[in-house]
């Protein structure tokens, strides 16, 4: 996994994170170390097919019976901006 400025910026953009130039440089170095460390994955011998191809026991499905929803007030308690009915964010395209 090559870590360069382009890759770093791509990941930051996807993850909605930003860094100051100094921090970005520092984190890139850290990520480079981690990337080398992660390459160790390729050294694992005799890898088997991935877990998801195995037939594990299936999910127990939930019965389609209504529960009681939470109070709107409770759900909005922790929000930064709302008008009592709807959550508010700045303009979205």
């Amino acid at each position: 996994m090559k870590i360069n400025a382009e890759v770093f910026e791509y990941a930051s953009k996807l993850a909605k994170l930003k860094f100051s130039q100094a921090d970005a440089a520092k984190e890139m170095e850290n990520l480079k170390d981690i990337a080398v460390f992660v390459e160790g994955l390729k050294e694992i011998p005799d890898t088997l097919p991935e877990q998801t191809e195995r037939r594990e026991p299936g999910a127990k499905l939930r019965e389609d019976v209504s529960g009681v929803p939470f109070e709107r007030e409770t759900l909005m308690e922790n929000s930064s901006d709302n008008d009592g009915e709807l959550f508010i964010v700045p303009q979205t395209i």
């Binding site: 939930r62 389609d64 019976v65 209504s66 529960g67 929803p69 939470f70 709107r72 759900l75 909005m76 009915e85 709807l86 959550f87």
Partner: peptide, 22 residues
Amino acid sequence: ETKMFCSCPAIFGAEPNTLCCP
């Protein structure tokens, strides 16, 4: 009757944010 991944009622036209859970 309920949503795909929780038991909140799947109803159209209710007061906003009254059919929700964590």
